[in-house]
Every structure is written in C-alpha cells, then in structure tokens.
Amino acid sequence: MAMTTMEYPEIGEKLHIYEYSNGLKAFLIPMKGRLKKYAAFAVNYGSVNNTFIAPGDMEPVTVPDGTAHFLEHKLFEQKNGNVMDKFSALGSSPNAYTGFSQTAYLFSCTDRFRDNYRLLTGFVRNPYITEESVEKEKGIIAQEINMYADDPDWRGYFGFLNALYQNNPVRIDIAGTVESIGKISRDTLLKCYNTFYIPANMVIAAAGDIDPDKFFEWTGEALADWGRSPRGTAGGEMDLDGGITRIFPEEPKEIAAPLIEHSMSVSAPIFTMG
C-alpha cells in the first residue's frame, strides 16, 4: 500500500497517511525546524464500550465500569518494570488518557525520537499485567476518582449526562467508581485488551521534524507483523472493526430526569444544561 499525502498549502502543512495490511493506519505531520517531536497511539475503545462480543465468542460480556481507563493505567507496567522509567531515562514525558470512545498513549521528546517511539509501540503492543499490580493500582485510581468527585464542573457535567440518558454508558464516569474498579481483575483487563487492541482498531500518529519514509518504515518494523489481521465476516468482506460487536443498551426517547442536584461547597451554584 502506498503513502497518500494530503496538502494544506494555506498553512504550509502536509499530512502523510499509510495503511498497513493488518489494518493499522499511521499518520505523520512533518514539521520542519521544530525541536519537539510528538507521537500518539490510540485505540477505538473507551469507557462506553463496556458490553461487547469478542471476536470468536458467542455471548456478550459486560465488564465493570472504568475498565478501559484501568487498562490504560496498567499498560505502562512491563515485565522489567514500569515503562515510564524508560521514557524518563531518555528525558521524555509519556502520558495517556481515556475518553468515552478512545484511549490514547503518547509522548513528547526532543531527542532520540526513534527510541521513544519504539518504547511507545512496544508497551502498547505487549501487555504485562499481574494480579498484584492490578490490586496496587486500585488505590491510585480511587484517588483519581475522588479528585474528580471534588471538582464542581466535572460533577455538574456528569449530573447533566445522568439527567439526559437513562441507560447509555456515557452517563457513567470514565474512571468508574471506587466500588466498580474493586471488581476489576487481570482477566477483565486481558479480555478487553485482546478484544479491542488490534491493529485494525487502532491508529498511530506523529508530528515533528521527522522523515516520512523513515517513520512509516519504523512503524512497519514495530507493528506490521502484529498478529491478527482483520477478520473476514460471514460474507467474506473485510470488517475493519476486527469482528468486534459493540453492544449498547436501548435508549428511550425520554430524558432520565428533568433536574439532578448535588450539594457541595462552591461560591455560587454551577449548572449545566442542554
């Protein structure tokens, strides 16, 4: 497959796209003369994907709220320690975030882009999750949940989503609750990883003073042989979602509640409507 290029002459930028045979799409925005380089590896999977049928399975599975976010935390754990330390040794900063419908892993650096990029592709591709480390993470994530619980704007926004939707999982906090994450185990995380973290369900992108040919070559070296190619569906057509069935509950036309109130110490009432 060849590289395609989109040109944006008005702003003097280009976007190069390359799709690998396993369905992974890679994007590069070359930024000549810039010293900072940035890459992000993302999966089309977020907090709302809590019920699904994995490829090859017959029955749907429902996982505890906050599983996608928990998995984001645990992917940093590697066989020989936390991969954050390896980024640190290169002087770069890794990070990650989970949204309703995506999870992204990223880093920024100025030097040794290729080494950093190898770390990024390596840890996202190779989960190493132990029961012990899952238990350890629960305390950290509980504090992340509690931090948001004290944030009035966040509370207002989720109160609003709870008033709007009766069943759609978008009404549930991305990180779940202290109670729901208590039920997450290594098996839960691996089930979700194996279902969603497949090349056809992922994209990788970089920006910075990086040569496009080299970038797509490095990406190919790191990821083109990643096991599962897109599965054929019954009709034999290519299903670019890798055969994942995402299940969402029936959502009634009616809103869940006209008003939800929550009391906390703020200087003046905060509200969200829509």
């Binding site: 010293l35 900072k36 330390d85 640190s88 040794a89 290169l90 002087g91 900063s93 100025t110």
Partner: peptide, 20 residues
C-alpha cells in the same frame, strides 16, 4: 545515578522544547 541522569535529561528536554 539513574535519578540524577534521568532528571537532567528531563530538564534539558524541556529547555530545548521551549524554543518551539
């Protein structure tokens, strides 16, 4: 040594990136 080296590199990266 790891703390010293990694911290120095992190500081240098942020100073270098400042020019962007």
């Amino acid at each position: 040594d790891y703390e010293y080296e990694a911290t120095l590199k992190t500081i240098l990266t942020s100073l270098k990136a400042m020019s962007d």
